[in-house]
Structure formats: structure tokens, C-alpha cells
Design a protein around this nucleic acid. Sequence first.
DNA 1: ACGCTGCGAGACGCCTACGTTTCGCTGTGA
DNA 2: TCACAGCGAAACGTAGGCGTCTCGCAGCGT
Lengths: 192, 192
Amino acid sequence: MNDIPPEVDPRVERSRRVILEATLDELGEIGYGAMTIESVARRAGVGKATIYRHWQGKLDLLRDALETLKRPIPPPTEGSARERIVALLEALVEALGESRWSKCMPALIDAAARDETVQRFHHQFVGARRKIMVDLLVEGIAAGELPADLDPVLTSEVLAGPIFYRRLMTGEPFGRSVARQIVDLVLPTPIS
Amino acid sequence: MNDIPPEVDPRVERSRRVILEATLDELGEIGYGAMTIESVARRAGVGKATIYRHWQGKLDLLRDALETLKRPIPPPTEGSARERIVALLEALVEALGESRWSKCMPALIDAAARDETVQRFHHQFVGARRKIMVDLLVEGIAAGELPADLDPVLTSEVLAGPIFYRRLMTGEPFGRSVARQIVDLVLPTPIS
DNA sequence: ACGCTGCGAGACGCCTACGTTTCGCTGTGA
DNA sequence: TCACAGCGAAACGTAGGCGTCTCGCAGCGT
């Protein structure tokens, strides 16, 4: 995962960085089908030969660019299981509102439908996020805070699904507060 | 909506039909960004001049093609509110599994992110579907079969969201049975 | 200080799509 | 029956991306 830097020429480092940045920007803005090596080079302020020096082509470039999106998501650790679930869902709301990941999402979904490698990345990326939620649910069940017969996987989908639904299908704006609303609707209310 | 046929040349009728068909096929297969007038013409077995004779360009063509996807969805009328909701959700599962709409969905989401007209179409299409579910929920509440404090809009999103989530985000296969599982999880179980 | 190497720029031949035009051909409607 | 209109095919010049190559430059490591 974390190599000891093999004395890489800083010029190479810098080129790779600005090119991968430009790739994600371009992807988010015009989509995968319309994205070209030349448009990426223009946006990056780079000769296209420099891109071909480091990558085989468009798909190879995209795959590398997507890797840079991966970032560890810290699972919430404070409060009751229910509160931690709300917090994680709120983090998802935030991420889907502003992040570069969110901006690239439509293009990513489209590209995933065309290329199997991108599809694997996409599913894996989402899967990693969802696993955190599933873990929280399992903990909650183990702690007796949630019903023992709750299906954690299905529940995680029911919790996260509506947020993606709004982002991708209806375009309806949403704020942090939907997170708690969804949890209140889905998880049996504690006696209060 | 339903004009009296203005004596249209059957050759024109036929051309429009095969071209719009080919447009949707092309859209589903290679996406909006990669789709070209020439690729549509090739697939339709048509001279590209014939396309330019009827449409201004790619976007104009796409908009017309999308219109042909619209089809009335008959809301279920038999059984309890809960059973009708399950039935409607099952219909959604079917539609997301097999239909041309589903095949075009990734491209559609991508195109909606680039063009406002497509976005309006997409949101409206989804909105029309969701309205049926909301109506069912409202009926159920009015009939006393569902709790009076249930938010019908949010509930419809929580019901449908997970199915889209699987289709677009995780790629996990799903069958009719998820519909009932989701309803059982979300709607308070009737005393049984 | 200096040889090396990654760089931006841009030219290359090739290919494909653009949107328009022309050409016979054939089905249509009177 | 026959004028006409829509058709497929193909050619047009233009534009732009492909992937490769060659420059001269400037920042790199020794």
C-alpha cells in the first residue's frame, strides 16, 4: 500500500498529479464518453505525449485517476448505535453533496456500465462504504440496541438507498437532516 | 397527446420508428457521449441524411427517443394497501431488471448531468413513477391501514431507493422477493 | 558544473464524425 | 398511370482525436 518513495523524479510526480486531477475534473464535467486524451492534456496544461509516456490510453488513465478517490472513511465511535448510524448517514449526505466523488458519480455509473474494470472499482468503492454501515448495524444488534432479527445488509441498503435515489434519480436537494429522518423511519424507535 | 394522424407518409413513419429504436439501443450500449449520428444511422440501416432530415442533431434526437420510453404504469388495485405497495415495488424490480429503460439508465443519468432538458425528462419520468407509490401510501393512511404520521414522500423514497441502489451502485442481483423484504422492514408489521 | 531526462510544443499521417449535397431508385397518393 | 417525395448511398470539405515522433528547453541528481 505505502511504498518507500523510490527516489522518483519530482517532475514525474508533478505531472502525474496534475494529469490525474485533470482527468477527474474532465470526467465529472463532460463524462467518460466525451473525454479525450487531448482534452485532459489541455486542461492539465500538459503535452499529450506526457500522458502517453505514463499511461496506455484513456481507460488506463481513468483507472489510475479513480484510485486517487479512495480515502479511508472513519467510522463514528461516539454515542449509541443509533447515533453512530445517524452520524455515518450524515457523512454520506455530505459526501454526496459536495465531493469530487459525487461530481464524478454520473460519469462513473456510465463508465461502469461499459467497462468491467471500472465496474469492479465502482462496486468495490461502494461496498467498502457500505461495509462500515453493516458493521455498525451488527454491533448494534450484538449490543441489544437493535432487534436481533434485523437483516443488517438489507437495512444498510434501505438506509443509504434513498440518499442515492435523491442524488441520481429525482435531483431533489437534501440536507443533513434527512439522515435522521430515514433512521427514524427505518429503525424501530427506542422507547422515549 | 393523441393527434388524428395527419396523413403522414408511411415511409416517414417507418424511418422515424427505426431511427428512434436504434437511438435507444445505441444509447444503452455505448452511452450518450460515445453515441454519434453515424453510429445510429449504421445501426438503423439508414442514410444519415435521413436523420438530419428529421432532427437537428444528437440532442434533439435523444429527446425524441426518450419520449418513446414513456408508458403509463397501471397502479395495482387489488388487495390491502400493503399488498398493493408490494405489487408496485415488484413491478419496479421487474422494470429495473429487464426493460430498455433500465438498460439506458446509466447513460440517462450521465446525459442528465450534462444537459438540462434530459435532466428534466429524467426527473419527471422518475417522479411520475414515484407519484403512484405516494398515492398508494396516502390511500393506505387514509384507510387507517398505515400510521397517520407516516411521511408518504420519504417513505416512497425509502422503499424504492434500495432497488435503485442495487441496480446502480452495488450491481448485486435482485429478484421479486426483495420487494416484500423491503416493505416488511419499512412498514410497521400488521398484527399477524 | 554538467550530462541526462522528463518536459511542452507541435507536426505527422490516419481515421472518424460532422453537416451538406447530389444522385438514382422506389413506394406513395392522386 | 405518373409526378413527386422520401429514401440509401456516397462524396464533399472541415474539424478534431488518435498515437507517434522530433525538437529545444529547463530542472534534475551527481
